[in-house]
Design a protein around this nucleic acid. Structure first.
Lengths: 153, 153
DNA sequence: ATTTAACAAATTGCACACAATTTAATTGTA
DNA sequence: TACAATTAAATTGTGTGCAATTTGTTAAAT
């Protein structure tokens, strides 16, 4: 149990976990913005395509589960990717409720232009390789925990 | 140098640092949402108040630098906080360009209701205390690096 | 077979987030 | 002193992000 004076310490930015997490995510996305713009993608569109490049076609719902986005966000993003000519959106004949998302020829080819994108972090994130590995592991472990928590929202 | 086959490995979600960072930040903010709603705040408003609770009154610009937000985002957020009665927005007499942001009585008092908020993570982030400390350190170190990078955008 | 429940997307409304531009005030300089 | 450059906020336009609701389809129960 903390004393009252210590308790208010937790509200300092520097003592919070949530703040550097929030700020760091934003800054990293900002670094990705320019190189992504060159190949015609936003960050969210890039995340969507990474899933399709790795796993192939899947429903909007499955896609949303992988990247923690619901249809409210995903539907307009997918419509834009369709308009850009990178994905197809088709109802499954077997079940008209589900929208199957698949890569077009151009969407598949875009992967080759995207392989160099992750390197943009190398110059500007001042972490050693080991530190990056550690951070990735911890973030993934934390994500696992939140998955259960936010499931029933 | 990686071979071509290995190169495409970097685009897998599990191999990226940026994806768990992006997803984890969103999930953590989602956890904060409900308890914050109870005291009448959004996450961004909470971040703003944390700065004011810790450092006291300051200009919109200084505030924005601390939390990595520009006036485009901050101006409407501060107007809402003013409407809620938690902050004052006043032009400095010495320099009418700068908008001084200060806490109202209610804004100051809100801190006592907010001290319990950070604990919401305890139950749902499955990290040990040491892991949280490590993660916080690494995130802050990474943030330092990005600061220089995104300065001239 | 009809009704009900469950499900997947889409829609709506609100709140960021940020690049780019504009507005208003101040500073620096010829 | 004028006037250009700089600065701080505000504004504009686009793109998420999410809770809540709606729409359309399928499965389950009576």
């Amino acid at each position: 149990m903390l004393k009252s004076a210590d308790k208010s310490e937790v509200l300092k930015l520097g003592n919070q976990l949530c703040f550097p997490l929030y700020a760091c995510a934003k800054e990293v996305i900002k670094i990705y913005r320019k190189p992504l713009e060159k190949i015609g993608l936003t960050y969210t569109q890039y995340i969507v395509l990474m899933v399709l490049w790795e796993y192939g076609a899947m429903s909007e719902k499955s896609l949303g589960e992988k990247i923690y986005l619901d249809s409210g966000t995903l539907t307009p993003v997918l419509k834009k990717l369709e308009k850009s000519g990178f994905v197809r959106r088709e109802r499954l004949k077997a079940d008209e409720r589900v929208l199957q998302i698949s890569l077009t020829e151009n969407g598949s080819k875009l992967k080759e232009k995207a392989v160099d994108i992750p390197q943009v972090l190398d110059g500007c994130i001042h972490l050693t390789y080991d530190e990056m590995i550690t951070m990735k592991k911890l973030l993934n472990k934390a994500l696992e925990g939140t998955k259960e928590r936010n499931k029933n929202d």
